[in-house]
């Protein structure tokens, strides 16, 4: 453990460039989002499994320390998503991995995340220093939700058609294995999560904010199949992406193959468990809960 820590520390003081910092922030942000997601799914699904507890949880989310955490979370989602796009784009177009271009794109990602985060941070924190009137959320916007799901489906189909295309002169046959598939999945799911996670955070956290969210609010959204499909897709992509990301990180630090085998099994079980628990809540949720 102490050698691990001293190695870790030496890695941090290494004078790396923009890419090194991008890697460190990307990794920290990814793990942080996964941690949040896990708790978030556990408490959101209470809307179905334990409605009283959900009301308490949302109360907690409105407190100042949690609010600050949510503002940090938005920064993490923005940075991780945009930097993920950078990595996906450059890995697909290797000639872009030049010294000047890498630095330029990394700075653009730092800058764009910050610029997008500022107004979000304002909208989310204004409750702390001013009176805010919230228009009640009444429209469950079923039409919008179906359009969303349609666009997402098209994006998915487009992705799978675009990706394989590659030109070259010599063919080799390298059999696909778990690593190859997961590398691919991290990119597909990453691109899908841009509209899914960015859209979700924009609607829930920035525009509506935790101050209007309660059991009724969720019932309004889960009253429409479009939003249920949207949340199911978000759950499916984000959890699988995050858990495989965590596995990737743990493979770096855990060197004992026996221990790692147990960890892999634990991750699969956690993944299945959370998927079932959160997914069932969405599927089984019936509109009768609107009576709150």
């Amino acid at each position: 453990m102490s050698t691990f820590l001293s190695k870790f520390q030496e890695g941090l003081v290494y004078k790396g460039g923009t890419g090194h910092w991008a890697f460190i922030f990307h990794r920290i942000a990814g793990i942080a989002i996964l941690l949040f997601l896990t708790t978030h799914v556990i408490d959101t699904a209470w809307v179905y499994w334990a409605p009283e507890s959900y009301a308490h949880a949302v109360e907690l989310y409105r407190s100042t320390p949690f609010l600050l955490g949510e503002i940090a979370l938005v920064a993490a989602v923005l940075y991780h998503g945009l930097n993920g796009l950078k990595v996906i784009y450059l890995d697909r177009n290797p000639q872009g991995w030049g010294k000047a271009n890498e630095a330029k794109l990394s700075w653009i990602v730092f800058g764009a995340s910050f610029v997008l985060w500022l107004p979000a941070a304002f909208l989310m924190s204004r409750h702390l220093f001013m009176q805010v009137e919230h228009a009640p959320v009444t429209d469950n916007s079923a039409v919008i939700s179906y359009i969303n799901v349609g666009v997402l489906a098209l994006l998915g189909i487009g992705l799978s058609m675009l990706w394989g295309a590659s030109k070259g002169n010599r063919a080799v046959n390298v059999p696909m294995n778990f690593e190859t598939r997961m590398y691919r999945f991290m990119r597909y799911s990453g691109v899908m999560l841009i509209p899914l996670a960015f859209g979700h955070v924009l609607i829930k956290d920035i525009l509506h904010t935790v101050h209007v969210i309660d059991n009724n609010y969720v019932a309004l959204y889960w009253g429409s199949w479009g939003w249920r499909l949207y949340d199911l897709a978000l759950l499916g992509f984000a959890l699988a992406h995050g858990i495989n990301g965590l596995k990737q990180v743990l493979e770096d630090y855990i060197h004992n193959e026996k221990v790692m085998q147990t960890v892999r099994l634990a991750l699969v079980i956690a993944w299945l468990g959370i998927m079932l628990y959160g997914g069932l809540a969405i599927v089984l949720f019936s509109t009768m809960y609107q009576v709150y």
């Binding site: 890419g19 990595v87 390298v174 690593e179 493979e251």
Partner: peptide, 25 residues
């Protein structure tokens, strides 16, 4: 080439690269 790519396709092969870019620098 196929053999080398097969070796690099393994778990501790090319997929562990996190594109931190220190190497190029």
């Amino acid at each position: 080439s196929a053999q080398r790519l097969g070796i690099l396709n393994e778990r501790m092969g090319v997929w562990r690269c996190r594109t931190a870019f220190n190497c190029t620098n």
